[in-house]
């Protein structure tokens, strides 16, 4: 198991390095002169050259990249082009907001989606199953930014029950929680449907297996069979789905953060890209990639742990 964990972590680091390289080349290839954007049309060539030299952009790309990686290893993500603040400081301020949003979104989606999937199986092909099916597919079909705009209009603007913008007062947990409700709802809604469908499909397959018949033949109730005997096995493929979906959740949070004017990594990246603030873009992408890669590694380990057959093979 330890050996396996080590391999997975190493692979994660490789993925990370590769992503950074792709990102670096992509940023490099973006047309437009960052100095011209930064200094405006009336900047003199000397001012531009000076800025490029300060940002290290006059070096060849491989030197830029290797010094970038070396700096990262020293915990230095560079300086914000506009405010001259440390990028690492900016990110450590904003990242927690995004992580809270991501976990809150997937959390409530799991808490609702998994039981819905289970109930679909218990009452399969009945009225209840159909209703859950219709709702799930509708939830999946509505884009999260549309949900975000509508809940914003209804619950924040019309009814004034919840705040429309921001992440709540600092240090006030209640206010932060209230600010979290609408964006988390918007991002998680599609996931409720997605998870309900996935759990249902995966569980129906498990329910056809012989050991389920054994459990029933010993008089265990259908609820117990579903929740205790089938659920753990059905969730194994769902774990990897969630891990992959975390990428989608993070991109969903870009919309949600812009719509709800929430400080967060999505909002930060969006603003940095539009203002060609490359150090911030690179830093933000790196942090989200680290987040995503560590989630996938954890999911792999969790899957191996859930299934004792896999666990033994990996010993």
């Amino acid at each position: 198991m330890l050996n396996y964990a080590f391999k997975r972590v190493m692979l994660g680091i490789l993925i990370l390095l590769f992503t950074m390289m792709v990102m670096y080349v992509a940023v490099y290839l973006i047309p437009g002169d960052p100095a011209a954007v930064a200094l405006g049309p009336r900047a003199t060539p000397e001012m531009k050259a000076d800025l490029l030299a300060r940002m290290g952009l006059d070096q060849p790309i491989y030197i830029q990249f290797s010094s970038f990686i070396v700096n990262i290893l020293h915990g230095d993500l560079g300086l914000d082009v506009w405010s001259n603040r440390e990028v690492s400081a900016i990110i450590s301020e904003t990242m927690p907001n995004t992580m809270i949003l991501a976990f809150a979104s997937i959390g409530w989606a799991l808490a609702l989606g998994i039981p819905l999937g289970c109930f679909s199986v218990i009452y399969r092909n009945s009225f209840v199953d159909r209703i859950i099916g219709i709702l799930s597919v509708s939830f999946i079909a509505i884009p999260s930014f549309v949900v975000a705009i509508f809940v914003l209009l209804i619950f924040a603007v019309q009814l004034r029950w919840l705040p429309a913008i921001g992440a709540g007062e600092e240090g006030d947990i209640l206010s932060q929680a209230r600010a979290l409700i609408l964006p988390a709802f918007a991002i998680g809604l599609g996931w409720v449907g997605y998870l309900a469908r996935m759990v249902r499909a995966s569980m129906l397959e498990v329910m056809g297996e012989q050991h389920i018949r054994t459990a029933r033949a010993f008089g265990l109730s259908e609820t117990r069979v579903v929740f205790r005997y089938a659920l753990a096995i059905s969730l194994i493929p769902v774990i990897s789905l969630i891990a992959v979906g975390m990428g989608g959740i993070i991109s969903g949070s870009v919309f949600a953060e812009i719509i709800f004017a929430r400080p967060g990594i999505g909002n930060l990246t969006y603003n940095a890209v539009t203002s060609r603030n490359y150090p911030v873009v690179m830093g933000a992408v790196m942090v989200t990639t680290v987040f995503y890669v560590s989630i996938t590694v954890m999911a792999d380990l969790l899957m191996a742990y859930t299934d004792p057959r896999v666990r033994d093979v990996l010993k």
């Binding site: 297996e209 012989q210 050991h211 054994t214 005997y229 753990a232 096995i233 299934d307």
Partner: peptide, 13 residues
């Protein structure tokens, strides 16, 4: 007692 002993028990319990 069912026929196939290989699949008669739950693999994760």
């Amino acid at each position: 007692v069912f026929q196939d002993p290989m699949t008669t028990f739950n693999p994760v319990m």
